[in-house]
């Protein structure tokens, strides 16, 4: 990893009429880094991603990608980007291998380069036996893997993944995570947007938490959890009607509590010990769960809202 910034944003702003989608954010992504944009729907992640992808012009601020201004050098920058959009955007008339080949040709890649590269990518995405299938004949997970393989056809310096595992089942998600780990090992700089905290924790070296177009916090997942949450979280449920009225009685039993419509979260260094205190105080939760604090808790602390509404 070197100090060369692959992406540098200063006061980056995007407005649509009066609506400010991205509001003067600053961040840098370094070579070989896996960088995440975490936030709920409408936080400005995808808009930021489009600006980084050099397909959306910023309204204000500065943005440099690979040392160039995307408002002026869009095609040159995109030549070195691999983009995996939120929707797969595959050509349904073409076969699996043709989708990879044709996309490579858009980058001016030669037939000689593409012939082995397509086979290599099919193997990487575990789609060799679907080589001659049309897109509609494949599962959602397979189509997603094809979209990721397509984003790699030009051996990009930066791979941009917008919500890569939304809509996939757990097994398909883990296969994708494995593939992304391998890319990271190959030195690819990865930028990923997600509203899944476990995905951000698994894949990202560093993340920014966004809400309403602004950056709420920045750091590694571990740093953010350490700074904005406790070591453990005790979740207790007293029933939808009783959570609110029970909350004041729990106030002194933990470092901090959050009352959600369906449960109460108690932030503490030792969840089991706190649960014992809750029971000792005469309260009887219907269910209880002790878990490690996560980025979800960080987000809740920063915004007062959950990531997935």
């Amino acid at each position: 990893m070197t100090d060369l910034p692959m992406i540098k944003a200063v006061g980056l702003t995007k407005r649509f009429g009066d609506f400010v989608a991205v509001d003067g954010i600053n961040f840098e992504v370094r070579k070989g880094e896996s960088f995440g944009l975490l936030g709920p729907n409408g936080a400005g992640k995808s808009t930021t991603m489009k600006m980084i992808s050099a397909v959306s012009q910023r309204t204000d601020g500065e943005l440099e990608i690979l040392g160039k201004d995307p408002n002026k050098k869009g095609p040159e920058i995109r030549a070195h980007l691999g983009v995996v959009p939120q929707k797969d955007l595959l050509d349904r008339e073409l076969k699996t291998w043709e989708n990879l080949y044709v996309y490579g040709r858009f980058f001016g890649l030669s037939k000689k380069y593409l012939k082995p590269k397509v086979e290599e990518l099919l193997a990487f995405a575990q789609l060799e036996d679907k080589r001659n299938s049309k897109v509609d004949e494949m599962s959602g997970g397979m189509q997603r893997r094809l979209a990721i393989a397509r984003g790699l056809v030009n051996e990009p310096e930066i791979l941009l993944l917008d919500e890569p595992t939304t809509g996939l089942d757990p097994q398909a998600r883990h296969i994708l995570w494995d593939r992304l780990f391998r890319l990271k090992e190959n030195g690819v700089t990865i930028v990923i947007t997600t509203h899944y905290m476990d995905e951000a924790e698994q894949l990202c070296d560093r993340i920014i938490v966004m809400d309403a177009g602004k950056i709420m916090a920045e750091g590694s997942p571990a740093e953010l959890i350490k700074t904005y949450a406790s070591k453990e979280v005790l979740e207790v449920r007293f029933g939808t009607d009783r959570n609110e009225e029970t909350a004041p009685k729990l106030q002194n039993l933990a470092e901090r509590i959050e009352v959600l419509p369906d449960r109460i979260l108690l932030y503490t260094e030792n969840g089991e010990a706190t649960l014992e205190k809750v029971i000792a105080s005469g309260l009887s939760p219907i269910t209880s769960l002790v878990r490690r604090a996560s980025l979800e808790d960080v987000f809740l602390r920063l915004t007062g809202r959950t990531l997935v509404d």
Partner: peptide, 29 residues
């Protein structure tokens, strides 16, 4: 499962990538 041979940023010739795109789109069409 195969490992991907990958040298980020080396495969594409920017000059070639940004010129003649109309014909490559036509070939795709």
């Amino acid at each position: 499962m195969t490992d991907l041979r990958f040298t980020p940023g080396q495969a594409v010739d920017v000059r070639r990538a940004t010129r003649g795109g109309s014909w490559r789109v036509a070939a795709y069409r």
